Simulated scan of single mutants.
Amino acid sequence: MTRIGIILGSTRPGRNGEAVARWVTEIAQRRTDAEYELVDLLDYKLPHLDEAIPPSMGQYSQPHTQEWAAKIASFDGYVMVTPEYNHSTSGALKNAIDFLYGEWNNKAVGFVSYGSAGGTRAVEHLRLIAGELQMADVRAQVALSLFTDFENFSVFKPTDFQHDALTVTLDQVVAWSTALAPLRAAA
Rank of each mutant, 00 (worst) to 15 (best):
G17W: 06
E18F: 09
E18L: 06
E18T: 01
A19T: 00
A21V: 12
R22W: 02
V24R: 08
V24Q: 03
Q29R: 15
T32F: 01
D33R: 03
A34C: 10
Y36Q: 06
E37Q: 12
V39K: 01
L41I: 03
L42C: 10
K45C: 11
K45N: 15
L46F: 13
L46H: 07
L46M: 12
P47M: 06
D50M: 07
A52D: 02
I53G: 01
I53C: 09
S56A: 14
M57P: 00
Q59H: 13
Q59P: 01
Q62E: 06
A70P: 00
I72Y: 12
I72C: 11
A73R: 15
S74Y: 04
Y78K: 04
V79I: 15
M80D: 00
V81W: 00
V81N: 02
T82D: 11
T82V: 06
E84D: 11
Y85S: 00
N86V: 01
S88V: 08
S88M: 07
S88H: 10
G91A: 15
L93T: 01
L93M: 07
K94R: 08
A96P: 05
L100W: 12
L100F: 10
L100T: 10
G102K: 14
E103K: 07
N105S: 14
N105E: 14
N106A: 11
N106E: 04
K107Y: 10
A108C: 04
A108Q: 02
A108P: 00
V109F: 05
